[in-house]
């Protein structure tokens, strides 16, 4: 947008540039320090503590140590499993529900839509949620991590709004050709909605990957801990981690930062894709909600 009818003065522009640069550095520097510390060797960490902005003799000892089959490796597998299974199930249920509600005037769609809308407005609260999971016998089960957060009503609303925008003639034509509702969903609706399906799937995946609180609440057996609880124990609460039979013991701080890098990396990988679409998703929800 060209607002600049009168060009800004150089001093103003310099000040703006400075403020924005500082803001960006405040976000970037911590990441740089985390990665550098994870790669730094013992002498450097011993000398500088956490003040490592560039590893002088980079080594992967810390990564070798956390991937050699100990608690971190297991937690990583748990997190990957819960994320993959959870996001797939969430996406399937969300898409089905959104599709079931995407034909205005169909039998029962208005009350069900109300049920979805109200679920966005009122959350049940920690205690009753815990008791429900407990009464269902899901404590200490991976299913608790998935089932306690299976559907986000907001995502259903966004996806339904997207389905409603699809050209209805296409669906009618398919119906005349003898396609069932399920065929229409799988063959026409989903392929036309790839972008929204992918973004909502990724949002679910990020939520499962980041999930800390349900794990804290429902998982007490520490052999079932996902990565987030391992991070809390060994990084936030600073418990000493055993490195098994590793002959070369990496410095504690490097180990901790390596764990952080491992948990940040998947998010970084999907981030460009997320970023391309989330603003649009928010707008759909805001306009159509």
């Amino acid at each position: 947008m060209s607002v600049a009818l009168t060009p800004a003065r150089p001093a103003t522009r310099a000040a703006k540039g400075l403020v924005l640069t500082v803001c960006c550095l405040v976000v970037i520097l911590p990441f740089l320090a985390v990665v550098s510390t994870s790669l730094a060797d013992e002498s450097q960490v011993a000398a500088a503590g956490g003040y490592v902005l560039w590893p002088e003799r980079p080594s992967f000892y810390a990564y070798e140590a956390i991937f050699d089959g100990g608690v971190v490796t297991r937690a990583l597998l748990v997190s990957v499993g819960v994320t993959v299974v959870g996001a797939s199930l969430s996406l399937a249920c969300t898409a089905l529900l959104a599709y079931g509600l995407s034909r205005p005037g169909s039998f029962g769609s208005r009350p069900i839509l109300m049920v979805v809308l109200f679920s966005v407005l009122f959350s049940p609260g920690i205690i009753p949620m815990y008791l429900t999971v407990k009464e269902l016998g899901l404590l200490d089960s991976y299913w608790a991590l998935i089932l306690s957060a299976l559907i986000n009503g907001f995502n259903v609303i966004v996806m339904r709004a997207f389905f409603l925008e699809l050209p209805q003639e296409l669906l009618d034509a398919a119906k005349i050709d003898g396609a069932s509702e399920l065929t229409i969903l799988v063959r026409i609706v989903l392929p036309l909605s790839k972008a929204v399906v992918a973004v909502i799937g990724l949002f679910y995946a990020v939520a499962y990957w980041n999930n800390f609180f349900s794990a804290l609440l429902y998982i007490t057996d520490n052999s079932k801990y996902p990565l987030s609880l391992i991070l809390r124990t060994y990084v936030v609460d600073n418990a000493t981690i055993g490195t098994g039979d590793a002959t070369q013991v990496p410095p504690q701080q490097s180990l901790q930062m390596a764990m952080l890098v491992v948990s940040i990396l998947p998010i970084l990988l999907v981030y460009p894709f997320l970023q391309k679409h989330f603003a649009k998703g928010i707008m759909i929800g805001a306009v159509k909600g």
């Binding site: 249920c93 529900l97 049920v115 509702e181 399920l182």
Partner: peptide, 15 residues
């Protein structure tokens, strides 16, 4: 519309 309803069932039950 019964097939549409069937689609909505898993999500509805979960909610």
């Amino acid at each position: 519309d019964w097939l549409l309803l069937v689609c909505a069932v898993p999500g509805l039950v979960w909610l």
